[in-house]
Each structure stands twice: as C-alpha cells, then as structure tokens.
C-alpha cells in the first residue's frame, strides 16, 4: 500500500503542479493573487465538456484549443485589469478583492449557463483499465494527465529559460521597476505571462474530470486552496518550485488517504502552516536579509 500511495501521489502531484503553475506565474510576474484561478480551471473543464458534447472533440484537441483561446483572452484581460490594480497603493490586497469578485461572478454565470449538476468526460477517452507502474495500479487517464502536466511544465521551463521573452519575464520577476528602467516592455511581458497562466489553468481544467472525477461550477475555491498550498510549499513566485510543491502535496495526500483518510482535507492547511512556520520562503526560496 505504501509504494502504491507514493507512486499515485507523484502522478497526482504532477497534475497539481500544473494546477498551481499558472497561479505562481501570475504572482511571480505581477505580484498579484488571482483568486479566480480555480474558476478559470473550472471553465477549462466545461469548455472540454462542451467541445466533446457538441462537436465530439477529443480532450487532447480540446486542451490545445483551450490553451490557445485562454491565452488569447488572458492577454487583453491583463490590460483591462492589472495595470489599474498596480497603480493602487495596496495592489496585492486590491487584487484579492477584485479577483474574489471575479471568481464569484464566474461561478454564478456558469451555474446559470450549465446548472449545478456534476459534469465529466468519459475516462475511456484516455484509455481503459489500469496502468501498472512500479507495481502500483494507476488509471490510464491519470498517467495521461500526469504526462501532459509534465510536458506543460517542461514547456514553461523552456519558455522561461530558452527564449528571449522568457528571459525578459524572469527579469520582471526579479524586479519590475528595474526591468522598466532598462526599457523592457513590462506590460507586454506581463500580459503574455497572464495569458499563459490562464491557458495553463484551462489545460488543467480539461484534465480535471479525469483526475478529480467531475467538475462543478462551485469547484473553484477548493482548487484555489490546494493550489496555494502547492505554490507556497514550492516557493511563491518561483514557477518551477511548483513542481516540487505539487509532488509533495500529491504524495502527502495519498499517504493521508491510506493511513488517516478522514483527515485528508486538512492537508493543504497543514502544509501551509508547516511551511510558513519552518521555512516561510518556501522550499526553493532564498533567505533574504533586509538591513
């Protein structure tokens, strides 16, 4: 049972790395907290469900479409919302309020549009039967989702470390003011990061029915809480630390389900508290000294 839990935890954790990645990218680049992140993920799930129901589109095709559309929507949305926020004195607090409102609005509108019934995608679309990995039986859709998550993480890594735009993005993450002073088009870089973050959340949403069983308009807040735990563990503002955070969360969750199942939903909170007490900068954060 132990090995099974650990292996399942790693795969599940990879998925949650994808879930947290966009949230962390937005925080890292813009220093704002997108409380509507879970709702964007939910919209990705509903988009995949609609594309399958209406046009018979396979979830993998849907994932590509969702990525493109969400990036395209996220880019102008940035200009609509974020620059105004950043001009405010307390932009982090204001972002909490604004995105909380946006989250509520997305949930309400989705409820009106599709109702409250749980929706899902047939598991057979990503393969039927178990996949044996190191002796552990995993559903094939899990393995598929884990692989897609790993590819998405690798894509973000390549973007950040192997492209010029990625280098500029990292410069903004280090210091927005200095990036501005050196002539970097901060808004363009940030808008693209915002779009990519929404796209990643959308892709995570496409695979949510396979990993989480079903999607509902109300799933956003729960997803947010878990995503926060993942990115705080892996270091706020460090998108790649999210992978470690996701895997730690996944393994810890599966171990809790195996040995103390009733307490499993305490896990995100416990991880948050533990990290904030022991290593507030996160696992990959650098300690800073302020004179």
């Amino acid at each position: 049972m132990l090995i099974g839990a650990v292996v399942a935890g790693v795969v599940f954790g990879l998925y949650f790395a994808l879930v947290g990645l966009g949230l962390n990218l937005v925080f890292g680049v813009m220093r704002i907290v997108n409380l509507a992140h879970g709702d964007v993920l939910m919209l990705g799930g509903y988009a995949a469900w609609w594309l399958l129901s209406a046009f018979g589109l396979h979830p993998l095709v849907a994932a590509v479409l969702v990525l493109g559309v969400f990036i395209a929507v996220g880019y102008p949305l940035y200009y609509l919302v974020v620059p105004q926020l950043q001009r405010a004195r307390d932009s982090e607090m204001l972002s909490l309020i604004l995105f909380f409102g946006l989250s509520q609005m997305i949930e309400a509108v989705t409820t009106i549009a599709v109702g409250t019934t749980e929706r899902s995608l047939p598991g057979r679309m990503l393969g039927i039967g178990p996949f044996i990995l190191l002796g552990a039986r995993l559903p094939k859709p899990w393995v598929f989702s884990g692989v897609v998550s790993a590819v998405a993480v690798a894509g973000v890594y390549l973007y950040l470390y192997r492209t010029r735009l990625g280098m500029l993005t990292r410069a903004v993450m280090v210091s927005r003011d200095e990036a501005l002073a050196t002539g970097i088009d901060v808004h363009r870089v940030s808008a693209l990061a915002f779009g990519i973050a929404l796209g990643l959340a959308g892709v995570a949403g496409v695979f949510a029915p396979f990993m989480l069983g079903s999607i509902t308009p109300a799933m956003g807040p729960d997803i947010n809480l878990t995503a926060f735990a993942v990115i705080v563990v892996g270091t706020l503002g460090n998108p790649l630390g999210t992978v470690a955070g996701g895997v730690i969360y996944g393994v810890a969750l599966m171990l809790m389900q195996t040995y103390y199942s009733s307490w499993a939903n305490l896990l995100p909170n416990l991880l948050l508290i533990a990290v904030l007490l022991v290593r507030p900068e996160g696992l990959f954060g650098r300690k800073t000294r302020r004179a």
């Binding site: 049972m1 099974g4 839990a5 399942a8 935890g9 749980e118 990993m211 069983g213 389900q257 499993a264």
Partner: peptide, 30 residues
C-alpha cells in the same frame, strides 16, 4: 473521507488489499 474528496484511486487500491466481497460507498453525488 472528507466530503470534498473526489479522487478515489488510492482508496480503491487500499480497499482491494483487504479483499472484500462487497464495497459500499456512501457520500454525496460528487
């Protein structure tokens, strides 16, 4: 398990390890 549980893969593996004839799952629709 907590009511917001939606992933049951490991739980089912754990149940299978106890070799039951009958498995009764009680929760909400999700």
């Amino acid at each position: 398990v907590p009511t917001n549980t939606s992933n049951y893969t490991v739980l089912i593996n754990n149940i299978a390890a106890t070799k039951p004839d009958a498995v009764i799952e009680l929760g909400f629709p999700g």
